[in-house]
Amino acid sequence: MKQNTDQMNRMKQRLLLNNLMKHSFLFLTLIALAVLVILIVQVFTQGIGWLDWNFLTSKLSLNPDRAGILGVIVGTILLMVVVGPVTMLLGICTAIYLEEYAKKGRVHSFIQTNISNLAGVPSVIFGLLGLTVFSRMFNLGSSIVAGGLTMSLLVLPIVVVASQEAIRAVPQFLREASYGMGATKWQTIRRIVLPASLPGILTGMILSLSRAIGETAPLVVLGIPVLIMPVPDSLMDDFTALPIQIYYWTLDAVLTAEYANLAAATIIVLLIVLFIMNSAAIFIRNKFQKRY
């Protein structure tokens, strides 16, 4: 009898512990999400009052009341004009080579390992690479081209991996059917494989651009010279982008407290852009991705 109650007690204890742990696991998970909510609420309450049409359409100024981020937005857009095509071209070509042409062997695994290692290199290091190669050796200074090329190399692994997955998901029978009709390898890739994997590639592309838009460190290392930059006219101009401006405004908030609010307002713009881009990526993935 006594043994039985002992067993019952032990059973109860174990169930209690299970329940307790379940709820503490849930609680800790919720902490992470709570921080996300706090972060967004805090940034919005601080910045929303400063975010109006004037802020988006006027130029940078030392006077916080008149400062606007037109030049910053133009800088970010021009940066993407460089990053987008360069990354897309290099990324898709690399992915096609690895998936369709390279024989599984030394060369293939070497390039593959190399790409996954590149993905783990800190972004400041890419900044140093850009500073040495693009800024100094190619004499591009801290221009949009230099920043864009540096950023392209940084986000390249994201596009390559996403494109590889998309290409791999194209079923073999489509390729074989194409060969059966007498198409060559390149024709098959161009007319069958690429169209079928396009949604996946585009999703990866958008995600890599959204990484590039938010990345700060490599651009700061390239050395954007002053706080007040004019609106850039060409790709060879010096420039500032959304994250860099947030960085400088946050640093200078020690001198002028309103700069912190400007930084918050710029963050809101940045977060909204990222939200739109990620929604587009999810939309494309759900809408166009075919399952075979």
Binding site: L89, L90, C93, T94, I96, Y97, L98, Y101, A102, F110, I111, N114, I115, N117, L118, V121, I125, F126, L128, L129, T132, V133, L153, L156, P157, V160, T184, K185, W186
Partner: peptide, 28 residues
């Protein structure tokens, strides 16, 4: 010609990632 040139072009693109690593190591 295309069938021969394309793999070469693609390989060049793929090699850029290797060049990036070499570039990083060399500059450092």
């Amino acid at each position: 010609l295309m069938e021969k040139a394309v793999p070469l072009l693609l390989f060049t693109a793929a090699f850029i990632s290797v060049l990036t690593t070499i570039g990083i190591v060399l500059t450092l």
